[in-house]
């Protein structure tokens, strides 16, 4: 009974993490410029990786596996915001300007119709 409950929760977490990873990847392909592409990359790094590692944590049998998963999660939580921040600062220092809407009062910000 408790095993089935753990399996169900683990499946839910794994599927949610996979959905976040896919959404982040599509956002990184579709968004118009670098600074807006930082956002889905952060989505993949935090929610996708966190949910998938949490789902794997519920499937761990030995305690050393759980400890390794927690080490990976903690390391990703420390390094991925640092890497994103360093990338954004390097782009800003190199003079990359943020993308703006063509008319400053314009509606749809997409390149070709917004989809």
């Amino acid at each position: 009974m408790i095993g089935q409950l753990l399996d169900g929760m683990s499946w839910l977490l794994l599927l949610a993490g996979a959905a976040f990873v896919i959404i982040g990847a599509f956002g990184m392909l579709r968004l118009p410029d670098f600074y807006s592409r930082l956002h889905p990359a952060g989505l993949t790094d935090t929610m996708g990786a966190g949910l998938i590692l949490l789902g794997l944590l519920l499937q761990a049998e030995a305690w050393i596996v759980a400890v390794k998963l927690l080490i990976i999660a903690a390391f990703l939580l420390f390094t991925s915001p640092t890497a994103s921040h360093a990338t954004a600062r390097a782009a800003l220092a190199a003079g990359l300007r943020p993308w703006q809407t063509p008319k400053s009062g314009g509606g749809a910000p997409g390149q070709d119709g917004g989809t």
Binding site: L38, T44, D45, S80, S84
Partner: peptide
């Protein structure tokens, strides 16, 4: 920087 971000991801 897009490539660096993609490599990080």
């Amino acid at each position: 920087f897009d490539r660096i971000l993609a490599v990080n991801s």
